[in-house]
Design a binder for these strands. Structure first.
Length: 376
RNA sequence: GGGAAGAUACCGAAGCGGUCAAACGGGGCAGACUGUAAAUCUGUUGGCUCAGCCUUCGUAGGUUCGAAUCCUGCUCUUCCCA
């Protein structure tokens, strides 16, 4: 996988780049819509590509492993064939589920034993079988199996957790390099940097992942309950230590403001459920600020969803109509809101890229942040 | 014409002498959501000069220290018989 930096800025760490995968190029910075179960909730792939302008989507090892199951995906010929998305795909390893399904799993040196949230059955994830599973799913970018350390972890827990993640990373790479892709194209394995909110641990973690000449490096364990300034500080610490010529992926982040701040600090890739989940729940991110479309004040507002919006739906539909759909629990409402939010996120990172190239990123970012935190 | 049951807050529906401004649903209003156990979850929903007070359980009276709860008249609704 090739990554080239097209442009950098003098007053910030922000970069514009291009990541080449077997399923197409990705212009960075990029936001990657989350498609946990092989589907970005509520959005068809045609709209994702043409209207949202998504360049890469996610899938999730844990969810796909439980359902439909790896046999099905293998027989289909991999996830690309199965769901028909022909662009790049990244799969998360299930490490986040080890965190979010905390009460129904048990960690050991070997791996994570967990209960399915679907039927309660017991399963075991190890660094080795998670690599195998991700080979079978066949994403272009696959993630190391890690423990996503909780945001409120104390130093001792965070240190032990990081050390486990590091030992697991060694096993991930060992397995990864001794196996081959199943569908005739190259896969890249990204390590994940943990260390919670402790700069010294983050530095150690950064040094450790650099012992592998990976195609990209991810930062995990942020936006999991810690204060925002801690998150920004950790990003600073990590990006300062990472090689310049490799993409950096900040996992699970975040709000539009989080994304701009992270781009400013040298992050290239993002994913987050926020545009889709919050969209389903009536929260819109727009060029003017944040809208809770369920609020009564939009009941008779027949202005476009977002007058500056880039999605076709933004001008076509009014706030009043979208409010009606969401309030009435019509599934079209969730679809429109999700598609709008995703299109907005993709616009935001694309615009950031343009500004980096133009050279006025910092100024633009500061203006945008002011707008984006407003509640309309 | 005769008989039976019932009328509770925005709607439905509990309550059947004091602990009732009144359970529970729905609806309304607002909030949360960051590598998706989420088309989910939480709060709130008579008024006020708000640790208290005022007005509310069809309506007008009555019994009682005390009534949404008991009694009487009236109005309306539903069902059954003719």
């Amino acid at each position: 996988m090739k990554f080239e930096i097209n442009s950098t800025t003098s007053e910030s760490r922000a970069r514009a780049g291009k990541l080449e995968t077997a399923h197409g190029d990705i212009l960075t910075p990029i936001f990657m819509p989350v498609g946990t179960a092989g589907s970005v909730k509520g959005i068809h792939f045609d709209d994702l590509k043409k209207d949202v302008k998504a360049q890469i989507i996610l899938g999730n090892t844990y969810h796909l492993y439980l359902r439909p199951g790896i046999e099905v995906i293998e027989e289909a010929g991999g996830l690309h064939k199965f769901n028909s998305w022909d662009g790049p795909i990244l799969t998360d390893s299930g490490g986040f589920q080890v965190f979010s399904l905390g009460d129904i799993r048990k960690l050991s040196e070997e791996g994570a034993r967990f209960q399915s949230h679907i039927d309660g059955s017991y399963h075991m994830f190890t660094p080795e079988n998670v690599m195998d599973i991700q080979r079978s799913i066949g994403a272009d970018i696959i993630m190391a199996f890690d423990e996503c350390t909780p945001g409120d972890a104390d130093f001792n827990y965070a240190k032990k957790s990081l050390e486990l993640t590091q030992r697991w990373l060694d096993r991930c790479f060992e397995r990864f390099i001794s196996t081959s892709p199943k569908y005739g194209f190259k896969q890249s394995l990204f390590p994940i940097i943990q260390g919670s909110g402790f700069p010294e641990l983050r530095k150690l973690a950064t040094e450790h992942v650099k012992t592998y000449d990976a195609d990209g490096y991810a930062i995990g364990g942020l936006s999991v309950g810690e204060p925002e300034d801690v998150m920004y500080n950790m990003i600073d610490v990590v990006t300062a230590g990472l090689p310049l010529n490799k993409p950096r992926y900040l996992m699970g982040v975040g709000t539009p403001v989080n994304i701009l701040e992270a781009i400013d600090r040298g992050i290239d890739m993002f994913d987050c459920v926020m545009p889709t989940r919050n969209g389903r729940n009536g929260m819109l991110f727009t060029s003017e600020g944040i809208i809770n479309i369920r609020n009564k004040k939009w009941q008779k507002d027949f202005s476009p969803i977002d007058k500056n919006g880039v999605s076709n739906l933004d001008i076509r539909h009014t706030k009043a109509y979208l409010r009606h759909l969401i309030i009435s629990n019509e599934m079209l409402g969730a679809q429109i809101a999700s598609q709008h939010n995703l299109a907005f996120y993709l616009w935001l990172v694309t615009e950031a890229r343009n500004r980096i190239i133009e050279g006025d990123f910092k100024q633009w970012k500061n203006e945008m942040v002011k707008k984006l935190i407003q509640r309309l």
